[in-house]
């Protein structure tokens, strides 16, 4: 090994701000160290802001309902946060409430899994084959803007059971963002990486596996998170009209019974389930994108 090769160059002084060029060797690991999850001051501050924002929101809700504000928007019939909380605590102790939640989550799980598998598959095929793209794209363009609610009558006529029509409507909602984001991701594949791997002996399949899919992953992950959110509001549309269980049915039923606080309980449960499941999707896709974190 010649000395000339060992000379480490000075980091280039580029005009573009490169994130901390690491030219120094990594510090040697000093024995076994216990790593606690560190929460930075900034993260703590963010949490504080979130708590503050929610508190202010609930406070505003309380004030508006407590004073029966009727200024263009009418708060006279809106239940106060305390009544909603009471109703929630009562429901939590009943089995049927958990059945509603369980049924909704099961529907989401089935529809969303189908949408993931099919959506990523279709997106990848469309991204790699011009023929497939030309054949499938018109359907996506036309069917995508149709809202979930508009599908209800036809879904009931088409599918043998109510359950299957609800799952179909939910699936459809999640499908499009996943397909389109996957397609977009595949199209983002840098040509130079394809060429580089080809000259290293990669076959078409190798290029697909080692270049196209990893390049599309960030976009696919975004599509999966969006798809999860959309699947919730498609599910709700399906559950409100047809079905006997489900958190959407619970909410709609509360409206029929003029039970105002239960309407809000239902709405908030939907909101938190949607947020929670989207967060879960992000958490599950994060390890696949670990390389991005290290490179930013």
């Amino acid at each position: 090994m010649s000395q000339a090769l060992k000379t480490t160059e000075t980091p280039p002084v580029n005009a573009t701000p490169e994130p901390a060029v690491v030219a120094s060797p990594a510090p040697p690991p000093a024995g076994p160290t216990l790593r606690l999850p560190r929460i930075s001051a900034a993260q703590l501050g963010n949490l504080g802001l979130v708590a503050l924002s929610l508190t202010l929101g609930v406070l505003a809700w309380h004030l508006l309902t407590a004073n029966n504000v009727d200024f263009y928007i009418n708060f006279q019939n809106v239940p106060s946060p305390w009544r909603v909380f009471d109703a929630f605590v009562t429901h939590v102790q009943t089995g049927i409430f958990w059945t509603h939640i369980g049924v909704s989550m099961r529907r989401i799980l089935i529809s969303y899994s189908l949408a993931c598998a099919l959506g990523i598959g279709i997106g990848l095929v469309m991204g790699r084959s011009r023929l497939a793209r030309a054949l499938i794209m018109p359907y996506i363009e036309v069917v995508r803007p149709i809202p979930a609610v508009a599908w209800i009558p036809l879904a009931i006529l088409m599918w043998p059971t109510e359950e299957s029509s609800i799952i179909y409507i939910t699936f459809l909602g999640a499908l499009f963002p996943i397909v389109l984001n996957t397609l977009h991701g595949v199209e983002q594949t840098p040509e130079v990486l394809v060429r580089a791997t080809q000259s290293l002996g990669a076959s078409r399949w190798d290029v697909f596996r080692h270049v196209v899919i990893p390049a599309a992953l960030p976009s696919i992950a975004a599509g999966l998170a969006i798809g999860m959110g959309v699947s919730w509001f498609s599910l709700l549309a399906g559950e409100i009209i047809s079905g006997q269980y489900g958190i959407g049915y619970f909410t709609w039923n509360a409206y029929s019974l003029i039970n105002y606080q239960d309407i809000v309980v239902g709405m908030l449960v939907i909101g938190f389930l949607g947020t929670g499941s989207t967060a879960a999707v992000k958490l599950l896709t994060a390890p696949m994108l670990a390389w991005q974190k290290r490179t930013r």
Binding site: V192, S199, H210, L217
Partner: peptide, 20 residues
């Protein structure tokens, strides 16, 4: 006729696989 490992290629920049 096509690219192959007998002809190594070095590009101007950003040709390493960023996820590897």
């Amino acid at each position: 006729r096509k690219p192959g490992p007998d002809r190594g290629m070095v590009f101007q920049q950003y040709s390493l696989l960023p996820w590897k």
